[in-house]
């Protein structure tokens, strides 16, 4: 983005982020404004001298479905940790839109502020039913006392049912989440993400351990989400990435190695070297 454009974007006064409103409506998330929703600039994180992220710079556009690939240790998970406030970088800037400095917020604020994350290992609440899992994730007043007295409104029920349908678990609504199959758990996770009503979804290895059928269903789910949400998918499975990706970023040793469409990236000699050289 050019300097001028960036300045102009910064100076806009008409823009109010809808996540700042207490309870944004499920259907109102389409944002027509252009430009990145996520800015990651010059971010460095190191553990005991090992640089997990090395001046990483990355932009994700609003409504985009971005796939991030890279060999083990490339810094994919650490990047997500930084964005969601779990890890503090030593240097760099992370902005959500143009106005929100994510480095100043903590994990909970970021989570309730519009960035949802699905972890690598599916962690649903095993002892809660599918419906309860979705209820817990739902965007609502999450302070203690209101939660104690909370009752599901008809409208909230509607949203949960809608999500159940999207992830195809309507029949299992009252089943304990621990009894779901691996694939179903992953979808439930995505469903929980949706209930949070996030502007940006970070999805870590959604198809690990899935059957082909489940993978197709997941691909459908994720592509369906893009547009309404910005989605960042970290994945190892190349075939899956190819099936959903429009834009691919390759990370290597903590920084961006290549960026482009799947075909461009696959033919990039640097990428070939990294993948084949190992």
């Amino acid at each position: 983005m050019s300097m001028l454009e960036q300045t102009r974007e910064t100076m806009r006064r008409d823009r109010v982020f809808d996540w700042m409103m207490p309870s944004a409506d499920f259907s109102q998330r389409l944002d027509t404004s252009h430009g990145p929703i996520l800015y990651v600039e010059d971010v460095t994180v190191s553990f005991d001298g090992f640089r997990a992220l090395d001046e990483l710079t990355l932009y994700v556009d609003d409504g985009e479905l971005r796939c991030i690939i890279g060999p083990n240790g490339a810094g994919k998970t650490t990047m997500m940790d930084v964005i969601t406030g779990r890890t503090r970088p030593e240097q760099g800037r992370v902005w959500f839109g143009q106005r929100i400095d994510l480095l100043r917020l903590d994990e909970t604020e970021i989570a309730s502020g519009g960035i949802g994350r699905k972890f690598q290992k599916p962690t649903v609440f095993q002892n809660h039913s599918v419906l309860e899992n979705l209820e817990l994730a739902m965007a609502a007043d999450k302070r203690v006392w209101p939660t104690l007295l909370a009752r599901l409104s008809g409208e909230q029920r509607g949203r949960i049912e809608e999500a159940l349908e999207t992830i195809g678990l309507t029949a299992e609504a009252y089943q304990a989440a621990g009894q779901l199959s691996h694939g179903q758990k992953q979808w439930l996770e995505i469903g929980m993400l949706l209930m949070q009503n996030p502007r940006l979804l970070l999805v870590d290895e959604p198809v690990a351990g899935m059957t082909h059928q489940e993978m197709d269903r997941t691909a459908e789910l994720l592509t369906g989400l893009a547009g309404k949400h910005s989605v960042v998918v970290v994945e190892h499975d190349m075939e899956f990435v190819r099936s959903i990706a429009r834009q691919v970023t390759v990370l290597h040793q903590g920084s961006v190695l290549a960026e482009g469409t799947m075909d461009q990236v696959q033919n990039d000699p640097k990428v070939v070297e990294v993948y084949l050289g190992e």
């Binding site: 553990f47 005991d48 090992f50 997990a52 650490t78 940790d81 779990r86 890890t87």
Partner: peptide, 9 residues
């Protein structure tokens, strides 16, 4: 003297 590293975070 905390143990540093990925595991710690």
């Amino acid at each position: 003297f905390p143990q540093r590293g990925r595991a710690a975070s």
